[in-house]
Amino acid sequence: MNEATRHITTFKRRTALKSVVHGSALIGLALVFGGQAALAQTSSAMIEMGGLQLTQEWDKVFPKSGKVDHQKVTFKNRYGITLAADLYLPKNRDNQRLAAIVVGGPFGAVKEQSSGLYAQIMAERGFVTLAFDGSYTGESGGEPRNVASPDINTEDFMAAVDFIGLQSYVDRERIGVIGICGWGGMALNAVAADKRVKAVVASTMYDMTRVMSKGYNDSMTAEQRAQALEQLSRQRWDDAAAGTPAYQPDYNKLKGGEPQFLVDYADYYMTPRGYHPRAVNSGNAWTVTTPLSFMNMPILTYIKEISPRPILFIHGENAHSRYFAETAYAAAEQPKELVIVKGATHVDLYDQVDKIPFDKMTDFFGKYLK
């Protein structure tokens, strides 16, 4: 039995392939990345920080870099929720105060996936970076599990800026933000209000308030919106009576015949490429009523107020979500830039390092965080 097989067997025994955590199904799949099996979360592999039980071993979906130092950290947001994060520090810092970048997203992902990859690579390029789990998800605190809010998740970005700006090795006047997918919209909303942030990147962005309230390509009719709100409103009575929220069907479990972009999501979240058991999108689910707080709260209303600070939009040429970035770009004031990555889909910009324009981001932050 080789090492990978031994870890997979152990993982299956410990989780029985179907654990249930905080009312959300946790699929006990074994993960193998580059021949290294992800370790199961057990009591011996956990550390206590900030009142949270955090995984001690490296359990990211990408290899650990030898060019950076990594550590787990926790901090509280303005609502008192404790957030868990991964801090990446360039080696050979020579005690100098560095520019910092806070990274969040995608929507339904965890810091062990895309945001951590972005953070680690940008740390290799000389920035202090912080990838965090949003409230109620991943290793962060908050009950019930797997619920989202445009207000609270915007606050999560600001709380991350609070934390990073208090570190002695960070120049708090040189802080940037990267938001990926649905957290791209959250990042723009946060930066519009938080004047401490000097530059922001929105990569393969979604405006989650737009898609939930209007449907893809704004296709939801007034009647469909009213029906959705009626159902969500009545679900609240069911949840209140039960004392616990109902959950949506498990995400990214394909039945056949889905649009290509859903196939792309499953190829990332449900395969060794990107599967992580704590991610909502890896076979878990949001609460049924999660869309309620998104329906009446357009988060990009004040995007013009990011100016005169710069925005870099990055999106795939073939992404189904490209219209979100193009609309946001048109609404934003200068300085702004829209980079369309030739041949790339939405999910390509989660982890395909040959397509994600890290050189462009490095130049962007190097220019505006100086």
Rank of each mutant, 00 (worst) to 15 (best):
V170F: 09
W183G: 00
N217Q: 10
N189E: 12
A187G: 00
Y216H: 10
K195D: 12
G215M: 07
K195M: 10
E173A: 08
R196M: 11
G179F: 04
R225N: 04
M186Y: 12
T209W: 04
N189S: 15
R225F: 08
A193D: 12
V200R: 01
G184P: 07
M208Y: 00
A228L: 15
Q231G: 09
L229Y: 08
G215F: 04
S203W: 02
D171P: 12
S213M: 09
T209V: 13
A193H: 11
V191H: 07
Y216T: 10
G215S: 09
A228H: 02
A192D: 07
A228Q: 14
S219R: 05
R172F: 10
R174H: 09
I178S: 01
D207V: 15
A228Y: 04
E223G: 08
A192H: 02
R196V: 10
V191P: 11
D218K: 11
V191F: 09
V170R: 01
D171S: 13
E230H: 09
Q231I: 15
V191D: 09
K195G: 12
G215R: 02
G182M: 08
S213F: 06
G176E: 03
D194H: 03
K195C: 09
V197P: 06
G176H: 02
K214Y: 12
E230N: 11
I180L: 14
E230M: 09
G176F: 02
L188A: 08
A226E: 14
M186L: 14
V201S: 00
R174C: 07
Q231L: 15
A222K: 09
A187L: 01
M205A: 02
V197Y: 01
D194G: 08
A228S: 08
G185R: 03
R172Q: 13
K214S: 15
A202C: 11
V211G: 03
D207H: 01
R210V: 04
Q227E: 15
A199F: 09
V177H: 00
D171C: 12
D171T: 08
M212S: 08
C181V: 07
G179S: 07
S168Q: 11
A193R: 13
E173D: 15
Y216C: 06
D218C: 11
N189L: 05
D207F: 02
G185A: 06
V200H: 00
S168W: 02
G176I: 05
A187C: 00
N189R: 13
K195E: 15
D207C: 10
A192R: 03
E173V: 00
D171N: 15
R210S: 12
G215P: 08
D171W: 04
A193C: 06
M212F: 14
V170N: 07
S213V: 12
E230D: 14
